[in-house]
Design a protein around this nucleic acid. Structure first.
Length: 101
DNA sequence: GGTCTGACTAGGT
DNA sequence: AACCTAGCCAGAC
């Protein structure tokens, strides 16, 4: 029986280049609805993986706050390198970039 | 084994 | 549109 974290990682790995997914969406696809918080918690424990953690954002299209703001800056840079654009208030258009499996 | 925590969300104001 | 609240539940201790 895979742990909750392993299910989450498996889904995040599927997010294609240039697309984003929300925490709630990842939770649903992982078969664990309403556990969006666990998704973020799982990603927080990542160290050096091939998991595209930066493609996971919150339901409002913005990068979620975390204990260390440096990672938020890095996340935005990584997304911009994939062609995802941000509005001046730091949001991205979910209509355009949300991953629809 | 009870309590606390939290990269969240939906719904109301 | 921004802010608040309750609900959520696997881990950590």
């Amino acid at each position: 029986m895979p742990s909750t974290y392993e299910k989450i990682y498996a889904v995040v790995k599927k997010i294609p280049y240039g697309r984003v997914a929300t925490y709630g969406q990842v939770a649903g696809l992982a078969g664990i609805p309403r556990q969006a918080r666990q998704v973020g918690y799982a990603l927080n424990h990542l160290t050096d993986n091939d998991i595209p953690w930066h493609r996971v954002i919150n339901a409002r299209g913005e990068i979620s706050g975390r204990s260390n703001p440096d990672y938020a800056r890095l996340q935005r840079i990584l997304l911009e390198e994939e062609g995802i654009t941000f509005s001046p208030d730091g949001r991205t258009s979910l209509t355009r970039f949300l991953w629809k499996p």
